[in-house]
Design a protein around this nucleic acid. Structure first.
Lengths: 195, 195
DNA sequence: CGTCGATTTCTAGCAGCGCTAGGGACAAGA
DNA sequence: TCTTGTCCCTAGCGCTGCTAGAAATCGACG
């Protein structure tokens, strides 16, 4: 009984260890450096142990993605609630989003660019993903015009931010003009004369 | 002399063959299926031959990207010049861009998402890339407000399209609402009351 | 206390990847 | 015919994600 419990606890602990190691390794050296052998070394177990916890490397990455998304959702919420007006809130959330992407590129990639089979845009999507989207939704809501599709509008805002971030991070947009582009995007997104 | 020329011609021919094979394989089965072994099989030469033409797999992908970008630039231009008003032209270019991404996902990926060390956003960027960007620029120009930074504005428009496309294609945005999102994006991008 | 049975973990290996060293075939010139 | 130089292929390196099967460990029971 207690033995069983202890084992489960230890297993859960080790699982956390794997996810943490993957995350730290990715943040330090990028996802290319995260190989199953390297990860096994890091946690001081052999490779097959990883597969007794996760279906494969993709599942480990998905776990990191969920963790990262919780962090993102928190930062978006903080930015939104700290802002004064609705307009400022939208801008603040946009800035927080792109700032997250730049500060934590590995996390951003595993959530939003690498394919890692997490369910998105469905009820089965992890809570963290829905929370993050919810933050965007709440920021977009007040500036929506009468009768606009809120979901689609939020998705559109999100996509704009995502595009700015990914093109910049892949070297396709010059880094130095990021703030200007972001300002233009947010400015064009808010209907003129909205408070 | 003539022998030399014939050899050079044959070499150039084989190089074209490699790029075409890579492109077709990628379009048919995705870039994961494009391995150097598979490519060598396809062109009926051994693997090392590829490396006598290109520095590596990345260089082959870059060549495909340039080809694909020429195609994209052509489609953007056609869309732009066929439109009536400036506003319609911007919308048409946006639709043409996302349509290209959906119709030729492998080409789109190699140009805009996979990293393939092509110089972007510099004078050394291949002409095809500059042409495609130029088409966007010409579509954005007429709807820009007084004194707006044209380059940054175009980049922002591009980023929005790119975000919509990549999030949708990776399954993060539901496919069915694409048209609605695209309409919202373009609508918000054009300042109210612009002709 | 010693042995059995089950669970856990490791060693070793598979098939694939991008890439390359070195040798053999083949054609052009003496 | 023999040499020279070019071209191309075979074979292999070190790496990847992943897994089968042996080994070791630990709890339970006689």
């Amino acid at each position: 009984m207690t033995i069983q419990k202890r084992r489960e606890r230890e297993r859960a602990e080790r699982e956390r260890l794997i996810v943490t190691a993957a995350r730290e390794l990715a943040e330090a050296e990028g996802w290319d450096a995260v190989t199953t052998r390297r990860l096994a070394d890091e946690i001081e177990y052999s490779q097959p142990v990883l597969y007794s916890h996760f279906k494969g490397k993709g599942a480990i990455m998905a776990a990191v993605a969920v963790q990262g998304c919780e962090e993102l959702a928190g930062e978006l919420r903080a930015a939104r609630t700290a802002a004064g007006s609705a307009r400022e809130a939208l801008a603040a959330v946009g800035r927080a989003y792109t700032a997250f992407a730049r500060r934590r590129p590995a996390l951003y990639d595993v959530i939003f660019t690498l394919d890692v089979d997490l369910p998105f845009a469905t009820p089965e999507a992890p809570a963290a993903l829905q929370d993050a989207f919810g933050e965007l939704l709440q920021a977009v809501q007040p500036i929506a015009a009468e009768g606009e599709d809120m979901g689609a509008l939020t998705e559109t805002y999100w996509a704009g931010l995502h595009g700015l971030v990914t093109l910049m991070r892949s070297g396709r947009l010059p880094e130095e003009a990021h703030e200007r582009r972001l300002g233009l995007f947010i400015g064009h997104f808010v209907p003129q004369g909205t408070d």
